[in-house]
Design a protein around this nucleic acid. Structure first.
Lengths: 151, 151
DNA sequence: ACTTTACCTCAACCTATCTTTAGGTTTTAG
DNA sequence: CTAAAACCTAAAGATAGGTTGAGGTAAAGT
């Protein structure tokens, strides 16, 4: 256990880009945003630890779930900086985002019900249509639990 | 039927903005995008037909469903231009977007299942994890029906 | 009539998430 | 050793969906 193989091979940016299917420019961009880290070799070229691949994969997965890069950064920042993140570390992130995803799904389902209702009613009277109402409680923030409670 | 009350009161931009809870600048913007229309009075000020309120409400509702302005324009363009849209006209739009919403919900649910699976498996092997796989069939386009069929 | 409020245009600016371009350096393959 | 491939930085450009500001005109209240 103590003597597991070294996991700090240094990966070049082109390799990382190809492996994780993102542009090199995106890796630069992520680095400026603090989402990934690298060090430089003698010739000033970026080198990465292998776990950067996982970080990128996680970033992409979170993006698919609709999480912004800023939120992703906040969450990634909770990973241990002193050691390479392990299975449980990564699992915690998933749990966090899963809750967000659940909320999003619930929001969309409520929205769907409303659309359905509005097809039925025709909604010629805008003031009475919950979906079309400009001041609808279904706001941009869609904070989740509160929605629909007054309908 | 022939002599129904005239519905072409002319609304000023400030009134429309207040009523539909959007900025005047947004109305200008929507107009440049062809999402709404207006004519001008003698003093060059915009005037709107009352059904613009419904259009704006529909635009906002569609945005909540994640439809882009471009898609919204395409759909709005299918409304009759010769007459004021009626109940059935609006209902058709809802039906269309509802299908998109259903797809989106289904997509998120598949994503959720994957996240769940990945928490369980730990996914230390990136190549075997369906969620973290860069070349995952869950793409940006998420065309719906095809997804997950090879899992 | 006069003042305030409403409206006009055009251009610049904003956030998020990147991509592209230009000009220069390093590494690697033959 | 040389040439190609890979890498570097900084700045500008792209796209969506607007917002803000400046400078000027129109309409409405008193």
């Amino acid at each position: 256990m103590e003597k597991k193989p070294l996991q700090d091979a240094n990966l070049a940016v082109g390799y990382v880009a190809k492996r994780s299917d993102v542009n090199i420019s995106t890796l630069h961009f992520y680095e400026t945003k603090g989402l990934i880290r690298s060090w430089r070799n003698n010739g000033n070229q970026r080198r990465y630890k292998p776990d950067v691949l996982r970080r990128i994969a996680v970033i992409k997965a979170a993006q698919k779930m609709g999480v912004t890069l800023e939120e992703i950064k906040l969450t990634l920042d909770t990973l241990p900086q002193s050691r390479t993140p392990n299975k449980n570390d990564w699992a915690k992130l998933s749990t966090q985002w899963q809750a967000q995803l659940d909320e999003k799904i619930a929001y969309m389902q409520r929205l769907r019900e409303r659309v359905e209702g509005c097809i039925g009613c025709g909604c010629l009277s805008m003031s009475s249509c919950p979906l079309y109402n400009p001041n609808d409680i279904l706001g941009e923030t869609h904070s989740g639990a509160v929605l629909l409670e007054k309908d």
